[in-house]
Amino acid sequence: MQKLLWAEQQKLRRSKFVWIAVFATVMVAAIIFIGGLVEYDGVRDIDTAGWYMSVAQPLATIFVLSAVTALLGSYIICREEQEDTIKSLQLIPVNEAKLTIAKMIITLIFSILLYLLLFVITFVVEAFLHFSDLSIEMVFGFLKAYFLDGLGIFLAISPIIALVSQMKKGYWLALVITEFYSFIGLFTSMSDNLKALYPITAVFTISGYYDATTSQIILSCMSLLLCVGFAAVILAGMNKTTTNCV
């Protein structure tokens, strides 16, 4: 597994994808910053300590980051099929299910790093604008929230990535499904129960973006675990098919 992880990391290093994802994250942060410059009753949102770090989480997730993470997951899985390297890998032989798990671990790390990058950008801007208003407790609270966002979003979209890995050439499908999957989160956030249940908004319940009761947090954890379970079932099915083929 370690070798597979190393190989995946090396492959990703050569790909432009990482830089494009970084570019998308920086652009999203910049757009949200611009959004914060609007004055409401003579007060700009961006002048409120913590606003930028707080609002960047759902906006970046719903519109861009979840789709970018799903795109990466599906891209690194589908490119083997697309570039016909999967045959060479099967000849080695590499266990396809293990390969997919390695790719998913890379996607998880990538998701967390993307959110940490967003945290760094928002924190630097907040520190530049009103350093004295930021407390260590607040900053570490947001750091924890962003880390959990990265982890949670990966868990929430893991069934889509697993499904795509089964369909092979489905990266477009992964992108579209994830975009609408996260978009629906805008509506589920209107109801207390739905926002704890729906995987995308459940991430924010766990990360602390929403004020939630213990039962809601448990419900959200269960929702994300269900997603992981669903992804595991798909991957296990894949493993079975591979074994049968051999």
Binding site: K16, I20, M27, V68, L71, L175, E179
Partner: peptide, 12 residues
């Protein structure tokens, strides 16, 4: 990847 990422940013 780039056009798709730009699409998402463009819409936002």
């Amino acid at each position: 990847i780039l056009p798709v990422s730009i699409t998402l940013v463009y819409a936002l």
